[in-house]
Write a protein that binds this DNA or RNA. Structure first.
Lengths: 144, 144
DNA sequence: TATAATACATACTAACTTAGTAGGAATAAT
DNA sequence: ATTATTCCTACTAAGTTAGTATGTATTATA
């Protein structure tokens, strides 16, 4: 069980956008430089975040990206679900039909617990929480 | 974040061995058949479980495998650590030196929380717990 | 003692996933 | 017109996963 760079990068970008929330569009190039991510790769990730409804864009010179919602309305679980896909322990957790005897399965309960535990942590944290902590630490760093 | 079949199969095998704990050696072929796992693949997994100290073996005809410890002494977190490797969100959670500024990082705290949440669930459950639940449900099933 | 049943060992492989790169077209500010 | 940006699509190298393949070594038992 490993978290993909895709999700980590995506979250970093979202935190950058959250930090600059209200300050006009932020360019991919800037985000990529600040967070040491390949520009071209980040383009693809941001495009996913855009179709997911988390960011808006302005095209052309002086264009860029901004959060589509206030940072306190975006939970880490949302970003995870979009970029990482669902956390999956066993398919049966979400799709009972793959086994047919799921209602009796002792293992399914466990996988279900694991997924819930992860989701509980992630949905309890918003982008705004991260920005707040960042500020309280003097913006020293947030390599994610 | 996805759980590998490797770990799922390994856990299934361990549960089979836990169910038969005290009844003499259990053959790979039997476990593989009961749990619908490729015999050859399971051989490799069990070999890992053996070097991890979780199972003992008897070679030759009528040989097989058995748990090296009582099922109530084996926590799911142990099996995970061996087969899945550590749950990894970001390298910095375990190895602070990869970033150098980890002590100030707001993201590290989050990854750390996620890993702890997973570990809490997994270390709270033993093989014996699974066997007990299985028995209380009439051994209907445990496709894991 | 021959045979069968089992564990043990090592090498190979197809399919998939990841983390990109490459090369541009479309759009907007100046 | 030029430049800066987003947007789009295709390609790719390296690694991982879930196996197969082909045996050898060991032990029970007939």
């Amino acid at each position: 069980m490993k978290l993909s760079k895709r999700t980590r990068y995506g979250l970093r970008a979202m935190v950058e956008l959250a930090v600059g929330f209200g300050d006009g569009p932020l360019q991919i190039k800037l985000i990529a430089n600040r967070q040491a991510i390949s520009v071209k790769y980040l383009e693809q990730l941001i495009s996913v975040l855009k179709s997911g409804g988390f960011v808006n864009s302005i095209r052309g010179a002086k264009g860029g990206y901004m959060l589509a919602k206030s940072p306190d309305k975006i939970h880490l679980s949302d970003i995870f679900a979009l970029l990482e896909g669902d956390v999956v322990t066993s398919e049966c957790v979400r799709d009972v039909s793959v086994c047919g005897r799921s209602s009796d399965c002792v293992a399914r309960d466990i996988w279900s617990k694991v997924e819930n535990a992860i989701d509980e942590v992630l949905s309890s944290i918003t982008l705004q929480d991260m920005v707040d902590r960042l500020n309280s630490r003097g913006k020293v760093n947030y390599q994610i």
